[in-house]
Amino acid sequence: MLQKSLSGRSLNNSITSDDILGKEVIDKDGGFIGVVEKVLIDPSLLEFIGISVDKGFLRRGLSIGKNYIDKVAEHAIFLKIPVAYEIRGKIVFDRDGKEVGVVSGIDLYGEYNRIKNLIVKPYSLFPLVKEIEIPYSYVREVGDNVMLNVAKSVLEKGK
């Protein structure tokens, strides 16, 4: 339907919330993060500031700032970053490939997508075993799992 415009500029190339809502969100590594459920707008500046992502049943949602959005494509929203929270549940291996534990939590720099420390639950027969905090500088590679650049003995000394 043809509409009249009172914006002072051409709005032909703009997109609407309908173009964003319900789309899949894909991170830099090609991981499917969830579905956009809200478009976030600053009430005073009336500017688009980000999106809220529904990650599925019983999973906490996630808000992503617009600076982390790469593009709004026809079928999905692509991010510029691998989402830091996606590291949870990955197995941590030391420099020699020895299993250290599983990432149970992360410590971020403020609300940025930068990890300060990994909280790792060591493999143990005892359920109440103390978690280890591993500085992110010890991480060599993050892929399907997490590879460290130090030996497990170094982490045990730092406990």
């Binding site: 990955k90 197995i91 291996f93 490939g97 590679e141 993050v142 892929g143 399907d144 799992n145 590879m147």
Partner: peptide
């Protein structure tokens, strides 16, 4: 019988 891990830690 030891594990073979990829660069990103995939077994």
């Amino acid at each position: 019988r030891k594990k073979v891990l990829s660069k990103g830690g995939k077994v």
